[in-house]
Amino acid sequence: MLYSLLRPLLFRLDPEQAHEVSLNGLRFCNNYGLDALFGSRPAPLPIEVMGMTFPNPVGIGAGLDKNGEYIDALAGLGFGFIEVGTVTPKPQAGNDKPRLFRFPGADAIINRMGFNNHGVDALLENLKKTRYRGILGINIGKNATTPIEAAVDDYLICMNKVYPYASYITINISSPNTKGLRDLQNEAALSVLLSQLKMRQLELADQTGRYVPLVVKIAPDLTTEAIAGIAKLFIEHRIDGVIATNTTLSRDGLMHLPGAEQQGGMSGAPLNSKSTLVIRELALQLEGAVPIIGVGGITRGGDAWEKIDAGASLVQIYSGLIFRGPVLVNECVEAARPFLAELEAKRQQQRALWQHARAEAEAARLAAEAQAAAEAEKAKQQTSS
């Protein structure tokens, strides 16, 4: 009710200004115990994904709170998990303003923010102050000035620093607003990147005694062939999760409105079906091997359920929160409640079967290699004698 009254006032402001006013208002209410003004928190709907138990399957996507300044306020809305970032090694201002555009007639947004953030060290200082002890994803990227061939260095810098604070770490290779970033989704480049990040993840897990899952966020503008190749690499490199999807370069569903020609990534309702199709194809290719977090165009509870039904275990909202307000969180949880437990139980069983099959295949491969080595040694001895 409160947000429906405030929305007309917020929409009179510049979008970035409205963003800051909204978040500061949420923080004020949270500080004074007034979260209930934005609606009741959803009843628990726990789900286990990536070895963690999420209080409910609905999270807030990266981009809303890039610097981790509003985590406690967002937690007061009842999210099952929170993702902050995208954060880069060094602070950067992002692209020139104006860079954020609302389209209320289509429940859509175009942004070309460009990873504007205060840098990873500032994020860490904010994380030290938060009271939140729930599941926290940290989304990391590269600085705009870092050449694409050196991108892995930026990801490793961020990964090393955020590892102690993260429940999971998201590798953002799909924003359309950093030049060349999406080139990292090409199979050859992606394989090199994932290999180095996975190696470092295992080293950090060994050093700290704590395994932090690695998640990759992909674009909605991939071909079916590209999705198949990416899925193969995720399985090969044992990536822990995938977020599908980021914003789109398409303007389908928006071209009838003035301003649709603005450069940047589009999110909101027109992205919904495109994102869901990517999730469905990704789930088909992954065959339960890697859990999916679905995001893109969720503006009602039914949208969240469609993504879960397509193959997602969790969902995230962002643009829908701007147009619908905090009531959307509870709506999405309730839409999933009647079906989630049974569906996820089937997926867990499928994942266990896949892991068993993979373990058997790996054991068979090692046995074959050992046998081949023994036969080669025997042949060598026979030759020398």
Results as ranks from 00 to 15, higher is better:
124 L>K: 00
263 Q>K: 12
226 A>S: 14
96 D>F: 10
59 G>V: 11
195 S>W: 07
42 P>Y: 03
299 T>V: 15
194 L>G: 04
225 E>M: 10
256 H>N: 13
300 R>I: 14
104 P>R: 06
237 H>C: 04
45 L>P: 12
152 V>M: 07
376 A>P: 03
266 M>L: 15
2 L>V: 14
323 F>T: 05
374 A>C: 11
56 N>W: 03
116 N>M: 03
1 M>F: 14
209 G>I: 10
75 A>E: 05
277 L>K: 08
140 I>V: 12
288 G>A: 07
269 A>S: 14
329 V>Q: 00
98 P>A: 02
359 A>C: 10
349 Q>C: 08
192 V>W: 08
372 A>M: 12
203 E>D: 13
37 L>W: 14
304 A>F: 10
384 S>E: 15
210 R>K: 12
313 S>W: 04
161 K>Y: 01
166 A>F: 00
319 S>E: 06
171 I>A: 12
272 N>Y: 10
226 A>H: 10
38 F>W: 13
26 L>C: 09
108 A>K: 00
229 G>Y: 08
41 R>Q: 11
11 F>E: 15
276 T>F: 08
335 A>F: 11
234 F>V: 02
8 P>W: 01
308 I>F: 00
298 I>D: 08
74 L>F: 14
195 S>T: 13
80 G>L: 01
176 P>E: 03
220 P>V: 06
159 M>D: 02
197 L>A: 02
218 I>N: 06
54 F>M: 07
167 S>G: 02
304 A>N: 11
317 I>W: 03
255 M>Y: 05
281 E>G: 07
115 F>K: 01
185 Q>G: 09
99 R>W: 09
238 R>Y: 09
327 V>L: 09
98 P>Y: 01
59 G>P: 09
109 I>Y: 00
116 N>W: 06
253 G>T: 09
47 I>H: 02
168 Y>M: 04
38 F>N: 02
120 V>E: 01
228 A>M: 06
173 I>F: 02
62 A>L: 08
122 A>R: 08
130 T>H: 07
213 P>M: 03
121 D>T: 12
132 Y>T: 13
17 Q>E: 13
310 A>V: 05
28 F>V: 15
331 E>W: 00
313 S>P: 01
243 I>A: 03
100 L>D: 11
233 L>S: 10
357 A>C: 14
364 A>S: 13
376 A>C: 04
157 I>N: 04
43 A>C: 09
195 S>E: 15
58 V>D: 04
382 Q>N: 15
159 M>Y: 06
218 I>S: 09
115 F>H: 00
232 K>M: 15
68 G>H: 02
361 A>M: 06
133 R>Q: 13
132 Y>N: 09
15 P>D: 12
57 P>W: 01
235 I>Q: 14
226 A>E: 15
75 A>K: 10
46 P>L: 05
313 S>K: 07
128 K>C: 10
167 S>Y: 00
137 G>S: 07
247 T>A: 05
74 L>D: 03
374 A>V: 11
42 P>E: 07
295 V>N: 01
103 F>I: 01
347 R>A: 01
222 L>W: 02
25 G>P: 08
56 N>A: 04
364 A>V: 11
383 T>W: 15
288 G>K: 06
54 F>Y: 12
